[in-house]
Design a protein around this nucleic acid. Structure first.
Lengths: 343, 343
DNA sequence: CTGAAAGCGCTTACAG
DNA sequence: CTGAAAGCGCTTACAG
């Protein structure tokens, strides 16, 4: 037991110290550590006592060197960083994943890769095996990262259904289309007849699917879709504001709008307010996500709740299963309409 | 070169493959990897060519096993998680640290430890050496984590000056007191005479120091401090709202208020609006941080800018220096008054 | 059920 | 400047 003079760390106990303390071989200690198979109860108890006494903690580097596993998982965000910080969805998702992994004692490495340069460095890091798998957040259809990771054989699960991509990729998503249908039906049930929509980027699943749900409901009601009632946004607050301004110009008789994210809906609210339109009296506004942005909006947003806790839990579950050798899987989770003041 | 049947990862090239390719020993390859000392130019070039050809990337687990270093750094947040997601400051800080570390090719592990249970697990993880050092965010004076880490000899730098603690701990902080002085002087220069304040928690440096700056300026101007003009908050939006409500009840003639964080200032704005007070006409409001919350407030907040980019860069610099064996250091960075619509 | 032994991929004195 | 060799702390067949 040494200790350096400047008050540094003590040399941590090794498996060897535990073995000596317990009066068994190092192999036996290792077996106890890895599930206790083929170990007698007496030996197991002695080892556990020795572990407690010595304060032994496994050296993960040594273990990883052998197993080829890093026992850690990456949370990879390929969006521009502003988006990560602007949109509360990411935060909620990050927290959920951190917690779900903590239950397995697996640390999460946050990887922010908004620029091509960062992406290159991160890809090298990941494919070198420093992480056992990746939780991939936000994939535009043009984003090569997903394919690169899959081609490199890195276990991977995406948040949201990857579009325009070979099938064999895990993902977890809310039922975007169904949620959108619920919201549009709700707006119609309020008696609104000129229902517009602000979509997400049309190279993302949320952009495409939520718009599809909107079209389906209108078609089902025998209402012809007026393209002037559709404006596309980029999931940012400013994008929502700009889209609403366009909508107002193209279709001044707008009386409701389904916005594909709560954050954009905040922007829509700002534009409507500036234009002198009252919400919900003149124009009803429905959001999507039920993120913290929904509650900080005025009026509070009627929205479609994405089950973020379940989404993150499922992402982790599917990823760990895949790391364990299982095949990719897709999970679709139901949404829920949440009625508040805006519609 | 093997490749498993399910399309898994190829076995990555090792130092041995590089050595064979370059026609040198493994030791020589290692020397090139670690700075190229005591290596002939010819050998160095051959090794570099071999590295390029094989696509070699060092196996960090093997390296760490020897060096005792993990080549990674933890970003530890001991606040309740809601705070992390509510207050944009954390996000900005996290991004800055991630970027500063990326320049050294060091990954950052985000560690969220809001509960005692999580804290215990994280402490075990850290003290077992899985991380070379810790960027500690948000330390209340009662928080034992800082002391525990220091006692364990873990390199550590806190964001904000740790209060009520032995001296030997690194930290990086904005000049809270000076920033507060600037703001209060500004409010007085507007002709306001009943200037109140909403403080941060008084067991945090920002709570204590910003209040001290407030008192100093008033004393300097010969204005007696009226304790009814002081209300304490908890850095949350709701806390700011509640504090402003109390202030209005205790001192109805309030004509300005210095709020110790932008997020709380948003809450203050809400309370003032509800009470029918116009900002800045009836009551001028000054914030602190210049976080994204300052720009999303209406009116936009006049505030004290904390130089977050520099703060995160310095935190990383000081931490790496300490990991390299240097002594702890304290860095105080200047703030800047930013004038917008609220005061 | 258990111990002795090999080996994971690297770094680092140690001889030259 | 360079190679041969030891060793970091662990896991895992391999014999018993």
């Amino acid at each position: 037991m040494t200790m350096n003079a400047t008050g540094g760390r003590r040399r941590p106990p090794t498996i060897h110290d535990v073995a000596r303390e317990a009066g068994v071989s190092r192999g036996t200690v290792s077996r106890v550590l890895n599930g206790g198979h083929y170990v007698s109860p007496a030996a197991e108890e002695a080892v556990n006592a020795a572990i407690r006494k010595t304060g032994y903690v496994v050296n993960r580097h040594a273990r990883s060197l052998i197993t080829g596993r890093s026992d850690s998982v990456g949370f990879l965000l390929t969006e521009p960083q502003e988006r990560f910080f602007e949109d509360p969805n990411f935060n909620v998702l990050l927290r959920g994943c951190t917690q779900a992994l903590a239950a397995h004692d697996i640390p999460l490495l946050l990887m922010l890769a908004g620029t091509p340069d960062e992406r290159r460095r991160i890809m090298r890091y990941i494919t070198a095996g420093h992480v056992d798998g990746v939780l991939l957040v936000s994939s535009h259809s043009g984003d090569p990262v997903a394919d690169e990771l899959r081609d490199a054989g890195v276990p991977l699960v995406a948040c949201g259904k990857p579009i325009g991509r070979a099938s064999k990729m895990s993902y977890v998503a809310a039922d975007d289309r169904d949620g959108a249908r619920d919201m549009v039906r709700h707006l119609l049930s309020l008696g609104r007849r000129r229902v517009g929509t602000v979509t997400g980027p049309l190279d993302t699943p949320g952009g495409v699917e939520r718009l599809a749900g909107y079209r389906e409901v209108l078609a089902g009601e025998g209402i012809e879709v007026d393209e002037r009632l559709i404006a596309s946004g980029d999931y940012s607050r400013a994008g929502g504001e700009a889209a609403a301004t366009r909508l107002l110009a193209q279709a001044p008789d707008l009386d409701a709008v389904f916005v594909a994210s709560d954050l954009m809906a905040q922007g829509v609210l700002t534009a409507l307010h500036r234009a002198g339109r009252r919400v919900p009296q003149d124009i009803a506004v429905g959001g999507f996500d039920d993120s913290p942005a929904a509650l900080s909006a005025r009026p509070e947003l009627t929205t479609v709740r994405q089950p973020w806790d379940r989404i993150s839990a499922e992402m982790v579950r599917v990823l760990l299963a895949q790391i364990g050798g299982e095949d990719p899987a897709a999970v679709i989770l139901p949404t829920e309409l949440v009625i508040r003041g805006s519609a």
